[in-house]
Design a protein around this nucleic acid. Structure first.
Lengths: 225, 225, 225, 225
DNA sequence: AATGAATGAGAGTTCATTCAT
DNA sequence: AATGAATGAACTCTCATTCAT
């Protein structure tokens, strides 16, 4: 079973600084007004990452889209990784904050879960690209130390949800024969994965989708009585 | 005078053969016994693709794992694409056949849908790698003509499901206020995406997962009465 | 919002651009002054192609000669093919223009043919490499669509010549028992093939060669009277 | 002007035995009857070399054409080079012998030159492939020591021709204002290069071509008196 | 006489990144 | 803030050749 495999993992995880939890400390350029340009570039990159995937999008692709040369991007960012980091951390920050707010607002578990579901769906349009990247490229990105904070953030969210589901079971709102962790994961995945086919201009908007999903989630697809 | 001549002239003659719906016609080597080696290699590749992603897995990674040189892989396969093609088509063929069988067996929509769900979950272990690739790399692979058959196959499956959901609505088994297409997509995605975290040795096996999911799908997470 | 974006999607999108008749539109780099570097590289490549043949010359050979790394060549050119394209199209453009001018200048067929012959020989030194490639590698290169324009250009030239030979026969300047097409081809080949042994510093220069050839062509090697 | 160029010339001119002037001593397999198979393979290879060029023809191409695997060819030949060697040496041997015979038969220089020209044209059909290789791939092959004998053979032929041309000039049969060496080379090239476009089934056969060429060669294309 | 698996070197090309200007 | 040239490493793939069977 001589495995000569290299499997070298992250090829250049040279202990990058990492924007640590997304504290988007701008690596280069700081003139406040100039950071508009920066944000524009991030947006362009995000669209490309969403469309073609992170790995398949080259730095040149991004530069082309911006009408500059690829080398020039390095005036704004110190690596391709740092661009995607910015995209993801900005999304995660916003999401975590909204979730926290929903939890603090309180209410019975059904209401809280509804709110959490609605929050997820509501990010579908403004953070479409980030979610797409998360769905498609996470498996690749997670190998880099700099993205560890995303895993940690996700764990925190998981605890939040499971807490609410368990509270719902204790108060006889939710069935006791479902597994909270399992259920959470399925809810989570079901929501995020819609980003792959969801089209903003379609029959249902993001909130319509949320309503539809909450209905099925709570009462199933069967007719009762 | 059997002329196997390729003589393919200009290399650009790009008409990718494509295993057309997965007719796994082995490009090279055919001695039936020797194809065991081939299948072994496919398996090794599948594991790597699943773990690191298709793009991030190099041909050398695969060869290393097999203990041979990268060039030697081309004795068995035409290209890296053809390896992943083999992985995916074998999965899709099996899945399609099982779905067809479930449909032919008949029964009320609830029974058919249950069967379809169970089929999906049952592939989770034997086709883990293929499903992983499908989830993570589809966005990249779909751009190549050779994988068109996967899209077509998926469309066919969609029609199958939607037909059953609609039949369920007509016979008052399923609620009429859900959108069949939307519902199908959510079911589909929810099931496949479990491959990202499902661990064969965990609390629930694939069938346990299926049971759990069917429960929630049909009746929701709320307590009724 | 000038979007230079390539975004070429699937790599197989093989529609070779082809400099279409040699419209040497430089694929990359355009600063007019910087294109000197480019032309220098083309010249280096041409010498190597002439000496070793197109196929036997590696991209690394060319880069070595230029003192850079092979990958760096791709900053200037799309591909090895595009380099040879540039070499050939530049030669063909010049040749075609000169031929056209000779034809427009007019005169009796003997004068026109003489002029055409002289034009060919006069390219021997400045376009030595291109002619060498044409003689040695045409059979290989012609299989690529991108070089179709060379065949077309050659056909046009053939028509030119044949027209003049026929006119010469009609006006009783040339013998009627020779085949115009055959004769043209032999003239053409005889001239170009000299590139294989012609040495600029030898007894005869290119114009000397032309004179010699015209003599033999019109009157043969025999003594008359 | 630091030229890091490798320009490594013949990559593996490891002092191959060389069939030395074509003494086709069969490298492997000797059973007399088995050498029929061998000759068949040489013929297949020759056709491919002629069509695609020596370098562009792979050993696999040849094997495919023969319906065997590429490795199996090495039972008959010890290298790709030795195949082309066989093709070329067989042609050169025959040509040299015919030339010698023509010279020995004697006659006035006009007659001898005519005979030599006819000999060349007469090889066009039976040795089409060899001539094609000679025309297209000589520049590549000449770098290998093993083909030195071809250059030597060519030099010998050159002396033959020049001798006859000079004799013609001395006897006032040929014009004195032509350069014998130059003239020979042009004759030689003009004849061999026809192989590129000559089609056995066309208007003129090889002898017809020869007649046409001899006419033009001796008396030119102009009308005299 | 041929197979089938593998080698090993090298091919053309890509691409994130650097840096002098 | 951007250019343009280059790096260096890695990539997929090719191919003549070897050799045990």
């Amino acid at each position: 079973m001589t495995t000569t495999s290299k499997d070298n993992g992250p090829q250049r995880s040279d202990a990058r600084t990492g924007t640590g939890g997304g504290a988007r400390r701008r690596a280069k350029g700081s003139s406040a007004l100039a950071s508009e340009r920066r944000e524009h570039l991030v947006k362009l990159a995000a669209e490309l990452f969403a469309k073609k995937g992170y790995q398949a999008t080259t730095v040149r692709n991004i530069a082309d889209e911006a009408g500059i040369l690829s080398g020039s991007l390095y005036h704004h960012f110190d690596s391709k990784e740092s661009i995607v980091d910015e995209i993801l951390s900005s999304f995660f920050n916003e999401l975590t904050a909204a979730n926290q707010a929903a939890l603090e607002k309180g209410g019975d578990p059904r209401a809280v879960i509804s709110a959490l579901v609605r929050i997820c769906f509501s990010t579908l349009v403004p953070h479409r690209a980030a979610i797409m990247v998360m769905q498609n490229d996470w498996n690749y990105l997670k190998q880099f130390d700099r993205f560890d904070y995303l895993s940690r953030s996700e764990e925190e969210t998981e605890r939040m949800w499971i807490g609410q589901i368990e509270r719902g079971q204790e108060t006889d709102l939710f069935r006791s024969d479902i597994d909270p962790k399992l259920t959470y994961r399925m809810i989570r995945d079901t929501i995020w994965v819609t980003v792959r086919w969801f089209q903003p201009g379609g029959r249902l908007d993001a909130q319509g989708l949320a309503d539809h999903y909450i209905k099925v989630l709570f009462d199933g697809i069967s007719v009762h009585q």
